[in-house]
Amino acid sequence: MSRLPWRKIETSLRTERPESGMKPADAFWSDFKARARLCNQDSPVGSVRVPMFLRWGLATTCAAALLAVVVTQGGLGSTEGGSHIKSLEVVASHSAVMIIEDEPTESTILWIVDMSLDRGEST
């Protein structure tokens, strides 16, 4: 058995070393993307494609509903207060009208004093 000097061992190891095969990151990803483009990719399971006309139809319906809320409710942020009277016309003859607002119950009483069932002047 012959003994090799360390210098020879070092040289032979250097020449017989396999290539690492590691590529730089940019080269790897560009190669990966190029390969990915070559084969068809299946779409994810369960995805739904909504037609454009349906999307616009729904959006228009929702906009109309929001507008209706704003018009009829006096705005989305309107707060609930008590019941109250906006306008009044008393056709029957009477002597006075009283409006009483009860704060604890937030109720309103409209009381027509001395109302007669005979037709009279309106208030």
Partner: peptide, 26 residues
């Protein structure tokens, strides 16, 4: 109305559960 006689017309805003009371009908 009482029968065919119109007694009053009013426009109101009602809040849920808050009573609006119209009274004085003979």
């Amino acid at each position: 109305k009482h029968g065919r006689k119109q007694l009053l017309n009013t426009s109101v805003r009602l809040s849920r559960g808050k009573p609006l009371i119209l009274g004085g009908f003979p």
